[in-house]
Every structure is written in structure tokens, then in C-alpha cells.
Design a protein around this nucleic acid. Structure first.
Lengths: 347, 347
DNA sequence: TTGAAAGCGATACCAT
DNA sequence: ATGGTATCGCTTTCAA
């Protein structure tokens, strides 16, 4: 129950303000403000003079005050939940880096299924972030999301929500799943299996749906279709063992690379099968691990750079604002064929 | 009643302010502020009334304005660079989660060696964050750090900097490295090797130094001591191959788990050695992957929870403020013995 | 306890 | 181009 009782005891020297700087130089405070505003109407020599003094006196504009008057924070809120999957840290790092390049900072909001999500997202509203990016696979209801992102630019990344009016950027999941199906077909596999991730996530449903559809079109047999409760190594591991126990499956498509990694290890180390000779394995995402020699995992690559670029563009141009119609931006991925489906190196 | 009248770009309805709410209720604006301030002097029924109206009218205090007047942001800046290593995302997620629990948000600063680091950290100063946590392995000079964190509480996590006056929280690296050495000794290994990470980082130097020292004390031979340029799977992979090529090494200590994972795969898959029968392998960190059945890596576990707890405590209590003397908080770790050094499962 | 008013440190709209 | 000045929305004295 102890809260903000501590005084800012040793918070150090208070930084100089624009007003003080102005007085020291003998100009108006407005001038100082303009000197720091690109494209403002100041004479070059005035600006020069002010900037010189500023440097000398170690003045820097207070961003908080600026936010208040501009009613613009230059902060993007990033709602995150599933940091276990290396795909997300990689995505978030790139995203925050690209945002930084255009002067935007990233405020991270970790949502955990444990506690009340609305409470956790309360701050998201109060901080008046300019935009919100949701990269969380965790189930946030359309209602919660609309509430949290009310009146601001918001982008869903790597997921869609049917009833929400939010713009989203997604890898073309169904295209990817179909490509995997085609790949299995071309390799001559007859009996294939799907191993799900977190069942009701949009990524899982799209991949599963497209894969099963395509399998049927190609006349292949869906020998197993395992429901999953999470995108984890363990889950992939156990699912693979279950499939191996049943036997007579030629190829498995795991909903993502982490699952596939677990599956691959289980098949080789515990089931004693050879991959891909006895059974082929494919994943989805193309995380760093997928290209490690040990795994050399065939997977459908999500182009993080393009996903990030699209997201940043949406934020920059202010599409995805409350008024605008929601759009789903589908980013095309790319099948990366590696040894887990083909015995010899290709790349 | 409501239409999007004022702003052109459709930024949405402006939220209601404390002043407006106060007028609607017929109380003073100060009262509204107090109602939202824990422990302020308001009568319970006044507070109740205001909070009820607030809920109804969807009022929430504007955090930016609050920051400006309180001169306190409730934001912690987290300086990050090395997200490739899963240890860091895990650490950062825990950290931001714990901070959230005490009402602090996390602003992420990604520093990349490419561009000018001072430019990248400029925002860190302007945003007036309450505290700064540096979890970046990237080389920030003491001068840069002092500049960036001037006048605010700052904590280095998982690294130390000799000439800086910053408080730091670190796993007991030398203890861990010694423990690995002892472990190798107890297993009867005679000729051991060290594979470095990023050479001049404090983590690497401490681990390397302690390992080599202990090895000497135990009378073991340092058969190889490979300099590294990065903490990566590839680097570990190649280093392991180099060691395998030289031959006659009983055990390898890799500076962290990612290196060890690469090394393990290289030894098994490419050098055709059995681990641990032909050669034992140990890492450092205990990332999730280390406990995967395939790797089952003996490693020295960094207790993320304790590291985070210590960091949060430092921030909460305001030790690590400019005035206070810098302290280095050493967190004890724990040796996790797994199959990469012992043929049978222990845990 | 409550209300009025003075900041907090910038921006932006006026005049000049 | 420059200087005044009214915001921005909240916190915090200071009186009542």
C-alpha cells in the first residue's frame, strides 16, 4: 500500500528552462521555442545565437511541456504479451527502431492474462500516446481494444479481430499455409498433419483453415489435426510424439517455428525418426533459429521488415485513425525450403 | 449531440477535462484532482460523488499534464540493444511487468551501434524519465552514460562500467564461472576451453577471468581460449568446430547459452562428437532453450526474478540517485547441471 | 474539507 | 522576423 510517499530527495539540479535561457540571452521566450522548431520563422543568425547559448548552458526543451501544449506525445504505445516466441522480440525491436528514426518513442505495455487487462491498459489511455500498436497474441476482446484505443490511431500487427474496427497488418497466413501444403504435395507426401498453436488466435485459425482446405484440394489425407493450447517448444514436442505414436504420417505442418523446433527434436531424439527421410517438418515465421544448421527448418517466412515498414507507414500517414475505414494489410511472405523437408541443403 | 467538429484530421473526440467535469458536477476543479489523488484531503462522499460522475462521463486524468505539474513522469527509460539473445527479452519483459505493478511504465530506447548514440539517447533526457535502466551490452562509454542519465536515478543491469558512477545489478559472474570450473574438475576433465562472447563486455571479462583463474588453481589445462566478437549461435558454432579440429579438449565453457547452443550443435552434428561422452559443454544464463531436451545444457542460471526485484527496489527506494554512492549489487546464481556435462538426467 | 489562483514549461496566435 | 500572452490540464499552496 505504499505509494508515492518518497520525496524526490536527491533528484539533482533542475534543468534550465526556455524562459531562463531567453532572459540570459536577452530575447523572448518565443524565440527560443522557434529556434528549436524546424521550419519556424526565425532568422538564421537568431537561431544560431540561441542554439549556441543553449548548447553552452545545456538547455534542452522539456518534452513533457511540449506534449501538453502540442497535444502530441510522439510516443507510440506497444501492447505486447507473448515475448516467449522470439518472433515478437525481433518484431518489436525492429519496430521501435524504425519509430525512433522518425522521432517516435515506444512505450511498452505488457499485458498478462493473469490480471485485469483493462486496468493494465488504463495507462495506455492516460498517457495520450499518438498511436497504439497491438502485437499481442493474447486474447483482447474487440470491446477492450476499442476502449483502449478510443480516438487514436491503432494498428493490430500479426492478428486480426473480426468485430473490431481496427486496421491490421498481417502476414498472408493463408497463402503461407497453402504454400506449405503445396510443398508437401510436390514432395509426394500423402498423409500430413497439422499442429495448432493457441487455438483461437487469428494466426492459428487462418493457417489451419487454409492448410486443411488446400490439403483437401490436393487430395492429401489429413492424418492428424492436433489442437494446441500454446505456441511453445514443449507443446510442439508433445504433439510430435503423439503423432509419431500413431504412425503413418509423412509430413507435419506446425503452426509456428517454436512448435516445429520442439517437434523436430522430439521426432529425432525421442521418436528416433529421421527428418526429413522418415517424416518432413515445416513451420511458420522463419525466426533466427529456423536457419540454424541443427534445425534447418523449412518454414514460411514472415518478412518482418515489410511488416514493420507497413505499420510505420500507417502511423506516419495517419491512416488507421478513428474516422477512416479499417483495412487489413496483407504482407506476402516467402517459403524458405530447408533440410527439414528436403534432404539436401538448398540455400 | 456529438459530432467530430473541431479538428480537421479526425483525431477523434477530445476527452473531457477535470475543469469541465468539475463544472458539470458543480464542484471545484481542485476537488476533482483530489478525488483522484490517493490520500488527499477530501471527504469520502465528495470523492465518491466525483468518481461516480467521472466513470459516467468517462473522465480520466491527463497524465501528461500531471507529469508537468508534478515534475514526475512515472516512466522508466530502458536502454536496450542486444535483443538477439533471448536472455534480454525475458529480462525486459519481467522488468516492465514488475514496474507496471507499481505504476511505472517503460519507455524503450533501442541503441544500435550504427548511428550516433548520443543522438539516440537525446530523447532519454528530454522525456524526463524518472529513472533509467541500462540493459545494453553494447559499448556505451562512461561519459555517454553519465550524460544520458545526468541527474536521474540510473541502474546498469548485467554489466558494470569501471569509470562510471552508476549503480549496477549483476549476476555474480565470477562465482558462476568458478562453479563451472569446479564442475569440470569434479567430472575429472583435464583439458578445458573457454569461448568468449563480445570480448570487452564486463560479463565476458568477468566470466573469462574467473574461469581461467579457477582452472589454474585446480591444476587444469586451458587447452583453448577463443576470443569472440559476438554472443551468437554462429559464433559458438564456429568456435566449437575450431576446438574440435584441434582435438584433445575435454570440456568447453561458453560465455553464454546461445554460444553454447551453437557449439553443442556443431560438436554433435558436424564434428560427430558425443556430448558429454566425448566432450562436455556448459553455458551461462539458463535461457529457456537450455532446458529443452535437445540441448539439456548445463549452465549457470541467472536468477532473472531476483535481478529484476533488486532493480525495481533500487528504483523505488531512490537509491542510485545522483548524490548517493554507486553500489554494485551482486546477485547469486545457481549451477544447473544437465545432460551436456552428465550423461544422465539429474533434474 | 473546500475553492480560488499561481505555477509547471512549452506552443501558437496575436500584434508589431 | 520578433515579442507579448493566452492556453494546455493538472497539482499545489493559501485562504476561507
Amino acid at each position: 500500500m505504499d505509494q508515492q510517499d518518497d520525496k524526490p530527495s536527491g533528484q539533482g539540479r533542475k534543468p534550465i528552462t526556455a524562459r531562463e535561457l531567453a532572459q540570459l540571452i536577452g530575447v523572448s521566450q518565443s524565440a527560443v521555442s522557434r529556434a528549436f522548431t524546424p521550419g519556424a520563422s526565425v532568422s538564421p543568425k537568431m537561431r544560431e545565437r540561441i542554439l549556441t547559448f543553449a548548447r553552452e548552458l545545456d538547455y534542452q526543451p522539456n518534452a513533457i511541456a511540449s506534449m501538453l501544449s502540442k497535444r502530441r506525445t510522439n510516443i507510440v504505445g506497444i501492447v505486447v504479451s507473448d515475448m516467449e516466441n522470439p518472433f515478437y522480440p525481433a518484431l518489436i525491436e525492429r519496430l521501435s527502431r524504425e519509430l525512433q528514426k522518425i522521432g517516435l518513442q515506444s512505450l511498452m505495455f505488457n499485458v498478462t492474462k493473469g490480471s485485469n487487462i483493462e486496468d493494465q491498459l488504463m495507462a495506455l489511455r492516460q498517457y495520450n500516446v499518438d498511436a497504439v500498436v497491438i502485437v499481442s497474441a493474447t486474447i483482447l476482446s474487440a470491446a477492450t481494444l476499442d476502449w483502449a484505443t478510443e480516438n487514436r490511431t491503432a494498428v493490430l500487427v500479426n492478428r486480426t479481430i473480426p468485430d473490431s474496427k481496427l486496421t491490421s497488418v498481417c502476414c498472408h497466413n493463408s497463402e503461407g499455409a497453402s504454400a506449405i501444403a503445396d510443398h508437401f504435395y510436390e514432395l509426394g507426401h500423402k498423409r500430413v498433419a497439422y499442429v495448432a498453436g493457441l487455438a483461437h488466435t487469428s494466426t492459428n485459425m487462418e493457417r489451419q483453415g487454409a492448410f486443411i482446405t488446400r490439403i483437401a484440394e490436393l487430395g492429401l489425407t489429413l492424418a492428424a489435426n492436433l489442437d494446441g493450447t500454446e505456441y511453445s517448444y514443449e507443446s510442439g514436442y508433445n504433439s510430435a510424439l503423439a503423432i509419431a505414436a500413431k504412425g503413418s504420417v509423412d509430413a507435419i505442418f506446425f503452426a509456428n517455428d517454436i512448435l516445429a523446433a520442439g517437434g523436430l527434436d522430439a521426432l529425432r531424439d525421442e521418436a528416433g525418426l529421421r527428418v526429413p527421410e522418415d517424416i518432413a517438418v515445416a513451420g511458420f515465421d522463419d525466426i533466427a533459429m529456423a536457419s540454424w544448421p541443427h534445425y534447418s527448418l523449412t518454414t514460411f517466412r514472415q518478412p518482418i521488415n515489410q511488416i514493420v515498414a507497413a505499420t510505420v507507414k500507417i502511423i506516419r500517414t495517419g491512416s488507421a485513425q478513428p474516422g477512416r475505414p479499417a483495412k487489413t494489410h496483407l504482407i506476402s511472405g516467402e517459403l524458405k525450403v530447408r533440410k527439414s523437408t528436403i534432404g539436401t541443403a538448398l540455400t
